[in-house]
């Protein structure tokens, strides 16, 4: 019994050492995206939001998450993808976003089509995204990982939801 438990613990440890970080993946317009699972605070169903005036379309609004006000960002709109009606599998992934400069962290929610899976992705299997030149801004793509014949786009949420996000917002707010 004890030995078995030890084995499992050993396996887990091994797994953690060899398989790299865990990523939560979600679906968005047929593609699979991954985010560092340690940043995920919770996953909740889509619920109505309170819109914030004079903010870009992809900022859906704010919700009350147990007493704190959390902004919700629609990733389809953010990536200029085709807009889809929210359905029963539409979820909000609540993430902790860290400011690269300061200690300050924010909590934000991402609206995605559906959650998919949790993978162990070894750091070395994440390939940097090819340079698309100025056509596509891939700053927020950490890299691409191939797993079980599927390609996962690993996002750098700090880049996605912080500096760029905020400056985009600021630009939109000041005409």
């Amino acid at each position: 019994m004890e030995a078995a438990a030890q084995n499992i613990a050993h396996d887990i440890q091994q797994g953690m050492e060899s398989d790299g970080d865990q990523y939560l993946t979600f679906m968005l317009a047929g593609e699979e995206y991954g985010v560092d699972i340690l940043r995920v605070q919770e996953i909740k169903g889509w619920d109505s939001v309170t819109p914030i005036p004079n903010t870009p379309e992809y900022i859906r609004g704010v919700i009350n998450l147990r007493g704190t006000i959390v902004p919700i960002i629609d990733l389809r709109r953010r990536f200029n993808l085709e807009i889809m009606e929210y359905g029963p599998v539409t979820v909000v992934i609540v993430l902790k976003v860290e400011d690269p400069e300061g200690e300050k962290s924010r909590v934000m929610g991402l609206v995605v089509d559906a959650v998919s899976d949790v993978y162990n992705v070894p750091e070395e299997s994440i390939k940097p995204a090819p340079d698309f030149g100025s056509v596509v801004d891939v700053d927020f793509v950490h890299g691409l990982a191939t797993l079980e014949n599927a390609m996962v786009i690993v996002l750098n949420i700090d880049r996605l939801l912080n500096a760029e996000e905020m400056s985009a917002v600021d630009k939109a707010a000041t005409p």
């Binding site: 005036p53 004079n54 704010v62 009350n64 934000m108």
Partner: peptide, 20 residues
């Protein structure tokens, strides 16, 4: 706290029904 300052809005509150 989680977002930024919005012109024309000084803050938010949570109403009795839980909405913002």
């Amino acid at each position: 706290t989680n977002f930024r300052k919005v012109e024309g809005v000084s803050g938010a509150t949570i109403l009795g029904d839980g909405t913002v």
